[in-house]
């Protein structure tokens, strides 16, 4: 089900402010890639352009062999988890997750029983069994996050995109969810991109990391590549904290591999 994503020379300008200046990126099928950068570096714009929520001024996005520009939002089949989750606040958890299935054209829409079993499976997958009758407002932040994920997975997406998936959570919950998300990715194998401004998060979770700086990709590589050979002074200073801690950790507990898959 998973497809590779190829981004070719994407350009996007908001008014006079350029957000993306010729971004190219290849993500292999089933890979988990982090888009890392400070705020204003263009990482969220890139994610939204891949989803089709922003219309790029130039460039191309390919899902496998398909040119995304020829696809409608519906045809793109993107699983997207918003920073604030964007759960439908007037719908119960069940209806939130079922939304994508019910929105399908009649011909391809599963029966209500089919929808029900699929939703309950997903709830089980995200470990929220029994919460289907709650409203989003009645859930904790971590629970909402997982509902949003289940809702995105319900449409069997080609690609999973997550915008600051842990940004709105407190530190403890973040840690748990990070681990859980990595496990989930290993089990489902979706091609996944996620945006973060948190170096720890990117390094711990992602197979590869793309570091963005002022609308350009400064470096793409594994955690080790980047730590060993920062491509630009910006990358070097941006990951300085991690590098220092990494060096300390190496001294104390060798051998240790950080953030590998």
């Amino acid at each position: 089900m998973s497809v590779p994503v190829r981004v070719r020379n994407l350009e996007k300008t908001f008014g006079r402010y350029p957000a993306l200046k010729g971004v190219s990126l290849d993500v292999e099928a089933g890979e988990l890639v982090a888009l890392l950068g400070p705020s204003g570096s263009g990482k969220t714009t890139l994610l939204r352009a891949i989803a089709g929520l922003e219309q790029p001024d130039a460039g191309q996005v390919l899902f496998g062999d398909l040119d995304a520009n020829t696809l409608s939002l519906r045809e793109r089949r993107i699983g997207f988890v918003f920073q604030q989750y964007a759960l439908f606040r007037h719908m119960k958890v069940f209806d939130n997750i079922a939304f994508g299935l019910r929105a399908r054209p009649r011909a391809s829409r599963p029966s209500e029983a089919g929808i029900r079993s699929r939703v309950l499976d997903l709830l089980h997958l995200v470990q929220l069994d029994g919460l289907e009758a709650r409203y989003p407002a009645q859930l904790s932040g971590g629970q909402r996050q997982r509902v949003a994920l289940a809702r995105a997975l319900a449409i069997e997406p080609r690609v999973l995109l997550l915008d600051e998936p842990f940004g709105a959570l407190d530190a403890r919950v973040r840690k748990d969810l990070r681990k859980w998300l990595r496990d989930l990715h290993q089990r489902t194998g979706h091609t996944t991109l996620f945006v973060t401004h948190d170096q720890d998060e990117a390094f711990e979770l992602a197979g590869r990391i793309a570091i963005l700086d002022h609308g350009r990709i400064a470096q793409v590589g594994t955690a080790q590549d980047i730590l060993d050979r920062p491509a630009t002074p910006f990358v070097g200073s941006f990951i300085e904290g991690i590098a220092r801690r990494e060096a300390q950790a190496r001294e104390w507990t060798k051998p240790h591999v950080v953030a590998s898959r």
């Binding site: 929520l53 699983g79 759960l87 929105a103």
Partner: peptide
């Protein structure tokens, strides 16, 4: 964002 979510989930504009 709720509208964007709905559209990405495959809903039509009217839906």
């Amino acid at each position: 964002s709720e509208e964007e979510a709905a559209l990405l989930l495959g809903a039509s504009g009217w839906h």
